[in-house]
Nucleic acid binder design. Structure first.
Lengths: 217, 217
DNA sequence: ATAAATTGTTAGACGACTCTAATATTTTAA
DNA sequence: TTAAAATATTAGAGTCGTCTAACAATTTAT
């Protein structure tokens, strides 16, 4: 096992490189809130440990070994989040920071037990998939709310989890994972969307918010 | 909050100085499994932070500030242990190492919720008292098994928690916190003790084991 | 296609924590 | 009461992870 810092680098590299397969030093520096030279020297260390592939002035890529480690941490993070919500009764908007700490707990017994208690769950409270103990992710169909036609009905399956304030916003609007919503109106000029919710209420979402909500039709 | 390392020093200083009010550098080095100079320099750092009072070649004492920090960590450790046993269903002999990690989690919400779920418990699974959120310890009457006269009956309230192997040993003998036992025979020549247990079985304990079992008469 | 802007790297230093080797103090026992 | 044993400290170095300042490569836009 690597250090706490190392685990955080690996996790961030995974998250930021998911789309394109690689990350740049500056993106990583921004995400981790450290300066460029810090990232540069850490990435070199990770490279000597064969956790990333890296050539100066080129992007950073996780090796298979690095990916495996990243998925193990993500698994722990997501299991912890679900545990905090389901077993401990905390709100989905307040568990992220605690899970950031619990994800570094080194105890297969602890996580095996959580997995068991939650009945081998596939998704965390934000709808993100939980990798299994081999790092395999059970994927789901994903469309962003902003891509739905007017009149269509869909179920919210996930949200992009970045800041607590975003989750607070959804809570305030009364939206939850699993809720069914119908697109009532899409405003072309600003991209905002009006939803019809199971609570019979109409909910107005800005484009910025809607694009971070994932649904299954 | 201090670093993880700092927290571990504070906790060990508290544990080792409980009896006499002070610890020596060498004892601390042994407990923490580091060399003497490491302890020496760390203790100096803790002294500049006003967490310990220290004069070269003299013992190390926690300041009020240090004690407060120690008790906060101990509270988290013991709450975590009880939580792992009661809520997560792990065995009392396997929770110590996990609690060693959970005790460093920085989240009042997390621990407040555990405290609530466990109904503000006063003792951990090993019978050790859990300090309240102000660091106050609810003390209990404590006598070691080896000080009981033959014929007396008492309830096991705690055990000295040092090594997993000791707890495994008690498990194997069928002894648990809360069990009532009667002293059947005390052997003078080797200090061993024969107990009568609620299970009607006779249990033989060596002096070494018996002195680490605490009872209430 | 070259200058400006952006992005990345190197050099060197610092704090936290550890170590080994050398030295000093305190305790114990002859 | 002094020599030996036990205990503690200092000096100096190494690793991890961070920083600032200076420089180098790459991209972009004129």
């Amino acid at each position: 096992m690597g250090s706490l810092t190392e685990e955080n680098y690996i996790k961030s590299i995974y998250a930021l490189s998911e789309a394109t397969g690689e990350v740049y030093v500056s993106e990583l520096a921004k995400k981790l809130e450290v300066k460029l030279p810090s990232v540069n020297s850490m990435v070199k260390r990770l490279a000597t440990k064969k956790l990333v592939a890296y050539a100066p002035y080129k992007g950073i890529k996780l090796t298979e070994k690095g990916k495996k480690e990243a998925l193990a941490i993500i698994r722990k993070h997501r299991l912890a989040e679900l545990f905090l919500v389901k077993v401990m009764g905390l709100g989905w908007e307040e568990v992220h920071d605690i899970a950031e700490q619990l994800e570094h707990v080194n105890s297969s017994r602890f996580y095996e037990r959580i997995d068991e208690l939650l009945n081998r769950p596939k998704f965390d409270p934000h709808g993100e998939p939980i990798p299994d103990s081999n790092g395999k992710i059970h994927n789901q169909q994903r469309t962003s709310l902003i891509h739905l036609e007017e009149g269509l009905t869909a179920t919210i399956t996930a949200v992009t989890e970045d800041e607590k304030s975003f989750l607070d916003h959804l809570n305030a609007k009364g939206l939850q994972i699993g809720d069914a919503v119908t697109i009532k109106k899409r405003e072309l000029f600003d991209g905002s969307i009006t939803l019809l919710h199971k609570s019979k209420k109409e909910i107005l979402l800005t484009h910025q918010v809607a694009e971070r909500i994932w649904v299954e039709v």
